[in-house]
Design a protein around this nucleic acid. Structure first.
Length: 224
DNA sequence: ACCCAGGTGGCCC
DNA sequence: GGGCCACATGGG
């Protein structure tokens, strides 16, 4: 099977978006009250069910800790206890501390960070311990409104089942599919990623391979 | 009693 | 550049 042209890819991606939007959207992500809460949530949700993250966020809110200053002041041990429900609490408390320390040192505020060219900020964020590609892109897109497409496990699962990427493609390769094919529109990227998550949460479980998946028509590979 | 969840870094080859 | 592992809770 020869690979689809750039124009065909673009058409398929827009077709997929339209279909998902019709079914679920618009969803207006990310579920948070402030950009800072988005950043905290992005770290807490690493390989973790969102319901567990909500419990951790609720703990931080209850204690009045959902601010840059408050999280800078708090002991890492106490922070770990408060975010316990989100799992990996020792690692994540350290990662939150790393991020906050870096942000205060480098920019002082989130607004100042987002005032800088986001492509530069992306490189800087990726160098912060505990902030990988998905976390970084989530912050840029959902906290900063920057057109940086977010790739996650759901994106990979759905796109590979549709035959648009390979299972083995790297994060940057999958991200490039979107970045190179679609207009750099943060509203579009915001909805697109949210819709992929919504679709997969409902229909793309790990074991069964999308039996009777309504997106079959978009598949570039033969249905089994 | 399993299996899974909106990853990441360290270590190894 | 990849493959494997630890990290941990709560829901289905």
């Amino acid at each position: 099977m020869n690979s689809p042209t750039q124009a065909e890819l673009r058409a398929r991606l827009m077709q997929l978006f339209d279909l998902l939007l019709e079914r679920y959207g618009p969803l207006h992500w990310w579920p948070a009250d402030t950009p800072f809460e988005v950043c905290v949530g992005a770290i807490l949700t690493q390989n973790t069910n969102w319901l567990n993250v909500e419990k951790a966020i609720a703990n931080l809110k209850r204690e009045g800790l959902l601010s840059l200053e408050a999280l800078w002041e708090i002991d890492q041990e106490r922070l770990a206890e408060l975010i316990r429900p989100s799992g990996f609490f020792n690692i994540k408390s350290a990662r939150l501390k790393h991020f906050i320390g870096w942000l205060l040192e480098r920019y002082g505020t989130l607004d100042a960070m987002f005032a800088e060219d986001w492509r530069l900020v992306r490189e800087e964020l990726l160098a912060v311990r505990g902030i990988g590609r998905e976390t970084c892109d989530s912050m840029l897109l959902y906290a900063g409104g920057k057109p940086s497409f977010v790739v996650d496990a759901y994106t990979r699962r759905l796109l590979s089942r549709l035959g648009l990427v390979r299972e083995t493609d790297s994060y940057e390769e999958v991200r490039s599919l979107f970045m190179d094919s679609l207009p750099h529109d943060s509203d579009l990227f915001n909805e697109y990623h949210a819709l992929i998550v919504e679709q997969c949460k409902r229909h793309c479980r790990k074991k069964p391979l999308c039996q009777g998946c309504p997106l079959q028509g978009l598949c570039t590979r033969p249905s089994r």
